[in-house]
């Protein structure tokens, strides 16, 4: 049996067996959750969502996962409270910790802040996205979706299109997919690719056409429309023209290929409406799977033994 995870900070810290186990737990939860039942592994616990950066679906997904595990969820949006008053990250976290929660789920705009926090608090820290660094539960839910649709991740070709340089989703996915035996390519305007993409173990192209025909999985990443990005992309129209996943580009795909998007979607920018709602799209499956993998993560870090027992009682051997 593996050593239980103390924190859940990033895919980079996990090995393939640990990833596989989390996916198996999520899969074991699925039939129960589908029936609308709870799995009360965290009864009486409190999970605090510390969101220093705005989020809709990730926070909702963690809250739902928390409740489905019968724990109570407390969500704090920090941008509009303490930080504005000049409180440091450590002080905020220590104050929250003094309220005796059992786990901190942290989203922060600065890379490395969940790791930083984990050194100052005694409860498990779960990374819900840190800067451009990692979004590990997103990578897990994407992995669960790929396994569900394609059977396995091994030997699959995954093409990630969009703003790779500023994407925690891309980094976590690259780490996970490679550990699970997939080959990964990234694609986007060079202004949005990291310097030396090859150091991440991926190959890359500036234009999607040459990559799409071999893809089993295409991930379109959200293009941010903020003003600062106009030094990186001339216009939404030009991005869409050269990099958008549209009907024409989808024609290059193999019949069974699937298209993922971490949301929220900019229809007509990185993905066209016909594609987002089309037969290759598995975007809504990703959202459902998000709750399952977050349950698996919370259960594993907060109550590893209880989770193990539950799995055993259901005949799941992990």
């Amino acid at each position: 049996m593996q050593k239980p995870l103390k924190h859940f900070l990033g895919i980079a810290d996990l090995d393939a067996a640990e990833i596989r186990k989390l996916l198996q737990i999520a899969k074991a939860f699925a039939p129960v959750v589908k029936k609308g039942e709870n799995i009360p592994l965290l009864q009486g616990r409190t999970i605090v969502n510390l969101f220093f950066e705005a989020s809709t679906r990730t926070r909702a997904s963690f809250e739902l996962a928390t409740r489905t595990l019968a724990a109570s969820a407390m969500s704090l949006s920090i941008p509009d409270s303490s930080v504005k008053k000049g409180e440091t990250l450590i002080d905020t976290a220590k104050n929250i910790e003094a309220m005796k929660p059992h786990c901190l789920v942290v989203r922060h705009a600065s890379a490395g802040s969940p790791l930083f926090l984990s050194k100052f608090v005694s409860v498990p820290v779960v990374n819900a996205g840190d800067g451009f660094h990692e979004h590990p539960t997103q990578a897990l839910l994407d992995a669960l979706t790929i396994e569900e649709k394609l059977g396995s991740i091994e030997k699959k070709r995954v093409v990630i299109v969009g703003d790779i340089a500023h994407s925690r989703v891309a980094r976590s996915n690259i780490y996970l997919l490679r550990k699970m035996g997939a080959s990964v390519a990234v694609c986007g305007p060079p202004t949005l690719l990291p310097p030396s993409p090859e150091v991440l173990g991926v190959d890359y192209a500036y234009r999607p056409e040459k990559l799409l025909k071999d893809a089993d999985v295409v991930m379109a990443l959200r293009i941010q429309l903020e003003r600062q990005n106009k030094m990186q992309i001339p216009s939404v129209a030009e991005y869409s023209k050269f990099w958008g996943i549209n009907k024409e580009r989808v024609k290059l795909l193999k019949p069974g290929a699937i298209i993922l998007h971490p949301g929220p979607i900019n229809r007509g920018v990185e993905i066209d409406t016909e594609v987002a709602d089309g037969k290759h799209s598995v975007i809504l499956d990703q959202v459902s799977n998000g709750v399952l993998v977050r349950m698996a993560v919370l259960a594993s870090v907060c109550a590893p033994e209880k989770t193990q027992e539950w799995l055993k009682s259901r005949g799941v051997n992990v």
Binding site: K230, A237, E238
Partner: peptide, 14 residues
């Protein structure tokens, strides 16, 4: 840059 203003990229690809 758009309008030669040095602020935003022009539509180079197009």
């Amino acid at each position: 840059s758009k309008g030669l203003q040095g602020q935003e990229l022009a539509e180079i690809g197009g």
